[in-house]
Amino acid sequence: MEYKSKVYIFLDDQIVPVGEFETPVRFELDTRKLVDGKHTLKIVGKDPVGNEGIKHIPFIVRNGPAIAIEGLKDNDIIDGIQPIMINAYGKGNQTQFLIDGSETPTSIPSWLWAGLIVFFGWAIYYVLTS
């Protein structure tokens, strides 16, 4: 007679489990073998009596380089010539931090320009009137 519960781990819609383990179990999911995007981890637990329980855990894999875009957002309505800045950068090998390309340069926001103009206008007015 079996005295330990078992867990079967499935990935996405696979019929064959990724692993079959007696509990308790430590499992490492290597996402480097998965394509970027949405996935589901399905865990089926079976106790010694034969009762089953199922848990679905949705997750998103993003191993590829991060892509940052400035100048165009989802569903924007544009015309003419639209300047767009695109940057893609990866995480490296996880043991060394890559500084080159890991930050996306952005333009100065228009509200900051307006604030600077108001401040310097006030400063010039203050100097001239005192």
Rank of each mutant, 00 (worst) to 15 (best):
S110A: 15
L41T: 03
F97C: 10
W111Y: 11
A68S: 13
P83M: 04
D30H: 08
G90N: 05
P83C: 04
I43V: 10
R26E: 13
F27Q: 04
N51P: 01
I108D: 11
I108C: 08
D30P: 00
V61I: 06
T40Y: 03
V35Y: 15
V44R: 01
K38V: 12
D76F: 09
H39L: 01
D76H: 06
D47G: 03
G53E: 10
L98F: 14
R32G: 13
G92T: 03
P65A: 10
E70T: 08
P109E: 08
G80V: 03
P109Y: 05
N75R: 14
L41V: 05
K38P: 03
D30I: 00
T31M: 02
I43Y: 00
P65T: 14
F27D: 02
I77N: 14
L34A: 05
L29R: 00
F27N: 03
I78T: 13
I81H: 15
G45N: 05
K55I: 07
T31V: 06
I60Y: 08
F27M: 03
F27A: 03
K91E: 13
P48N: 04
P105K: 07
K38N: 15
T104Q: 11
K73N: 13
G80M: 02
P65V: 14
K91D: 10
N63I: 05
L72D: 07
G64C: 06
I69V: 12
F59W: 05
G101T: 06
G80Y: 03
I81W: 15
D74P: 09
G50L: 03
F21E: 04
N51E: 14
Y89F: 10
E52H: 11
G71R: 05
F97K: 12
I43M: 05
E28I: 10
G80K: 02
H56P: 01
D100S: 11
P65C: 08
K42E: 02
L72Y: 10
D47C: 06
N63R: 07
N51W: 07
P105A: 06
I54S: 15
T31Q: 00
P65S: 09
V61L: 01
G90F: 03
D100I: 08
P58F: 03
E52K: 11
T95N: 13
I99E: 13
I60C: 07
L29T: 00
S102N: 12
E103G: 14
F21W: 06
G45Y: 00
W113S: 06
P109N: 09
T40N: 07
T40S: 04
N63S: 07
A68H: 09
I86D: 05
D36S: 06
D36F: 00
P83I: 01
P58V: 05
T95Q: 15
K33T: 06
A66C: 14
I60P: 01
I54Y: 14
E22N: 11
L112M: 13
L29H: 01
Q96K: 13
L29I: 03
N93W: 04
V49N: 13
I54V: 12
H56G: 07
E52F: 12
P58W: 02
D74I: 09
L34S: 02
K91C: 08
G101W: 00
F97A: 13
E28F: 13
W111V: 14
P83D: 05
I81F: 15
H39G: 00
F97W: 14
S102E: 08
D79Y: 12
V44Q: 02
N87W: 08
P105S: 08
G80R: 02
D30L: 09
R32S: 11
L112Q: 15
